[in-house]
Design a protein around this nucleic acid. Structure first.
Lengths: 252, 252
DNA sequence: GCCGCTGTGTACGCTGCAGTACATCTTCCG
DNA sequence: CGGAAGATGTACTGCAGCGTACACAGCGGC
């Protein structure tokens, strides 16, 4: 389940220049993240920053009465534990493994030491944090204005982008926790998608059959976040020399 | 309307140590912010960072169909334009003046120069950004799970905390834009509060009569954000030696 | 004093989702 | 092979909030 183990599968680690890599990579530790594992709880003092490779982590906010809502999804595009370098040490949310896999982690102390060098790591992490903020704000608006149907589509796309496969393992019960709706609501929404031939699922295995259609049925929130993330963190190597790259050059 | 003009009314500027103040204060420019002024639009390249003194700014997300929702409120406790130092230069939201007043501003270039010195300014702004993130995530959850009644209470408290008075100028129409609900919904919720004797209002002037009661009627979201903000950015000088001060001592 | 604008009150039907309660169907395990 | 646990389907009630429509009340201008 721990999958292959190249730190560079993670976009942030991948974007680091050589000196940073030489400094940091020896301290990276590969950890397996089983489904449902809680990386930290609301209020916990963070010990590590995690860089997922093939796992997906949900940032979940849990209210006092037990109701919950996902505020962001993080995969190999990002990092878990930004509060470490923001200076807060703790956050008000829970990080829980939504799709099993692995991640590289770094101790908080090591990260802060690197951060204080004010190298590329700092800039990349800050840009990533802005992308994360974008995702959070979009979630806020989406929660206010869009239907469960649309949100399910958005959620499936977010997960899909962070997996190499077109199939994900996730019960409707868990999805309902993420979206902060009833399980029955997810059943209905998923049933509609199944009828439309967009997805097929069976006892916790969801297969996406028609991704373009899924994007049509989703609210604008998905594409807004994706575009902004691509702008803030353009992939270096096998990437097309797109507009975002030109924009990046203009800034440096 | 521009009010008094001491940069230190703003908590972030106030928290700066002497060297930073000496460097930056000469470049601060006081600007008057009339009600409804848009500091920046979604996608605009940010030119300045604003430090409100007695004004209140809303970060508003506007969907393609015109629907909107507030994602954060900023007053003298914070700054507008964090994307400048996060590295993105633009954001996907709108900053609009919710309560007239004034703010000090700094050019983006000047801010970035200061930021690159890696002094106290960097750390304070990062901590503030985390507080902002907390507010945004709480908004996301609140939008999902709480009633308009509760949200109105939360919103009034957020505004109240950023004003010196117990009276605010704000039509129900505008409040409805912020909360992302119908104007009629606000009328009803406000009517209930009026009947309970918690507030009184008349044509855009809202006076809070019973603040403790307002806090009771609000959802937990208000106090969670307040506590976290106090933790991340404890006030230094004329503050009462409260719990937050003790918490500060524990961290330093 | 009349008019128009802005802000507020109220009412009515509709819809989406919460809450609740069961009824399958599959998989696992003894 | 039978039973329990887990996952999904369905059905019904109730309500919060939406969309819409309209009435009315303060307030300023001419």
């Amino acid at each position: 389940m721990a999958g292959t183990s190249d730190p560079q599968q993670n976009h942030i680690l991948h974007a680091l220049p050589q000196p940073e890599r030489d400094r940091l990579f020896p301290y990276l530790k590969l950890v397996a993240l089983p489904l449902g594992k809680v990386l930290y709880e609301s209020g916990d003092t963070l010990r590590h920053i995690y860089f997922p490779t093939d796992s997906i982590i949900s940032l979940l906010y849990v209210l006092k009465d037990g109701a919950s809502a996902e505020i962001a999804v993080v995969g190999n595009d990002g990092a878990i534990g930004v509060a470490l370098f923001m200076g807060g040490e703790t956050t008000t949310n829970r990080a829980i493994v939504q799709s099993a896999g692995s991640a590289y982690r770094l101790t908080g102390a090591r990260l802060k030491r690197e951060f204080e060098r004010h190298g590329e790591m700092l800039h990349i992490l800050l840009r990533y944090t802005q992308a994360l903020i974008t995702q959070m704000t979009q979630t806020a608006v989406c929660n206010r204005h869009h239907s469960v149907d649309q949100q399910l589509c958005r959620w499936l796309l977010l997960s899909l982008d962070r997996l190499s496969s077109d199939e994900l393992t996730m019960t409707q019960e868990l999805i309902s926790n993420m979206l902060g709706v009833r399980r029955e609501g997810v059943t209905e929404a998923a049933g509609k998608l199944q009828k439309l031939g967009v997805i097929s699922y069976h006892r916790g295995r969801i297969k996406v059959l028609d991704r373009p259609r899924l994007e049509e049925l989703s609210c604008e929130c998905y594409s807004v976040v994706k575009q902004e993330t691509d702008r803030l963190l353009p992939l270096r190597s096998p990437a097309r020399p797109s507009l975002t790259r030109a924009a990046q050059a203009a800034h440096d």
